[in-house]
């Protein structure tokens, strides 16, 4: 049985009415699905020249990752590479409006775009020894530990939803950033995918 925990949310989120379905599974599925509360999420567009990177480092204490598919992290912030001029900044200590003010200030001198996207993204955490198998039912990324590790991120497609995927630990745990309008679909899809791994799990 997959574990599903619904993160407490006082806000009006797209996932609020999704509940456990309690589907029986015939082999143990080692995965936990969790809805996480997004805090400050900011989309940043800028050319990553030295001055811009430095300015962000000074304000956030975190580097802007320039290697494709990587994440830089500090105590309360992750910066996820989306594209060569695009990042998602997550700040756990403040709301999106505050976070975007911080970043706007950091990039005031640059040709940059800073957008609060806290309300447009949901985060679903998929964690546990079978997390890869559950994701691979709908995702064509190679998530094998030889190819994908904690600190890596990738924007891709899971089932029929575009997702920014971030591996956070070796459990393994993946945090999926998904547009709010696709979040319910993705949650239900993940619940379904996590309900059985018969035939999918490698024979022991």
């Amino acid at each position: 049985m997959p574990n599903k925990s619904v993160g407490e949310s006082k806000k009006q989120g797209a996932l609020d009415h999704c509940e456990h379905t309690g589907r029986p599974a015939y082999i143990e599925v080692g995965v936990t699905l969790t809805q996480m509360r997004p805090t400050g999420l900011v989309n940043v567009r800028v050319r990553p020249d030295n001055l811009a990177v430095e300015s962000i480092r000074n304000k956030l204490g975190c580097d802007l990752p320039t290697v494709p598919g990587t994440v830089e992290s500090s105590s309360d912030c992750h910066i996820l590479w989306i594209g060569p001029t695009e990042w998602l900044v997550t700040m756990s200590s403040c709301e999106g409006s505050v976070a975007s003010e911080v970043l706007s200030a950091a990039l005031a001198e640059f040709h940059a775009a800073v957008n609060d996207v806290s309300d447009s993204l949901h985060i679903i955490r998929v964690s546990g020894e079978d997390a890869r198998l559950v994701l691979e039912k709908g995702c064509s990324l190679d998530l094998h530990q030889r190819e994908f590790r904690p600190g890596r991120c990738a924007r891709s497609v899971i089932a029929k939803a575009t997702v920014l995927l971030h591996q956070t630990d070796d459990a393994p745990s993946f945090e999926l950033y998904v547009d709010r309008s696709y979040a319910e679909y993705l949650w239900r899809w993940l619940e379904d995918a996590a309900s059985t791994l018969v035939g999918v799990k490698r024979q022991e």
């Binding site: 797209a14 009415h17 039912k137 029929k160 709010r180 696709y182 379904d192």
Partner: peptide, 18 residues
């Protein structure tokens, strides 16, 4: 595959859907 029933295609809902 599982592209059937409620998983056939994403249903996008607005914040005021309910």
């Amino acid at each position: 595959g599982r592209d059937v029933d409620h998983l056939f295609d994403p249903v996008r809902k607005t914040p005021m859907h309910e």
